[in-house]
Design a protein around this nucleic acid. Sequence first.
DNA 1: CATATTGTAATAGTTGTATATTACAATATG
DNA 2: CATATTGTAATATACAACTATTACAATATG
Lengths: 125, 125
Amino acid sequence: MINFKLDPKSGVPFYRQIIDQIRYGIASGDLKLGEQLPTVRALAVQLKVNLNTVTKAYKELEIQKILETQQGTGTFIGSLTVNISEKEKHDKLKSICREFMSIAYSYGFDVEDVIQELKQNGGRS
Amino acid sequence: MINFKLDPKSGVPFYRQIIDQIRYGIASGDLKLGEQLPTVRALAVQLKVNLNTVTKAYKELEIQKILETQQGTGTFIGSLTVNISEKEKHDKLKSICREFMSIAYSYGFDVEDVIQELKQNGGRS
DNA sequence: CATATTGTAATAGTTGTATATTACAATATG
DNA sequence: CATATTGTAATATACAACTATTACAATATG
């Protein structure tokens, strides 16, 4: 199961964030074939977004055969193997890091400060 | 000087990508105080986006005192100083990093991945 | 069978993003 | 001074994203 998390500051549409997290979850083996995802209503409540937003994400993945849905039952991981290219992964990492540093910089931190902190506490503190 | 690049697939608005790249550039030492940025028109042409889009990015950074602009002359990296106490600063850094990593985790990236990326694009100068 | 649960659909309204276009204002340059 | 260059402003248009709301359809459950 994924620990879904939305970042409102990222500029990335919510439904895209949901889609990506599911895709990355499958690709990394974190989500397995047949596993049930949260219901559209449950995830909407959890993420504090509208029902339609979750629905849009699930539906797009269903069209891509990545998810399988059954009305009245739920939404499940389909059998389609998800491959995420190294380039796409790297682009995503870059995008996340840029946003990270953009925020960090606004508090006066530079890359070294952040690296130092991450090395020390692993972001857990 | 930054090698600006937009990723239309990322979902991040163009103007936000421009902002992030500039802030990242400063935080990584790639952009130095007083350095001139491309003119709004030049960057618009280079990135193949509308003049207004670049303007929006520059203007927001100007409001935040990160850039300084002079009509007829150009746009330059300003001197943003942040004054908060050391303890407050460190607490902030910790909380930012925690937030960073929780998002990175949801995409399957770990601390090492992030550190690696930050080192790559920050240690270049 | 009755009811709850799950996904689906449709409509309307608001906000944000980006484009195109035109024009003006301030500064630099010859 | 004349002109080019740079940032600024204003308007209109189109589309995407998100929300709110209501209702329906298919399946599961007691």
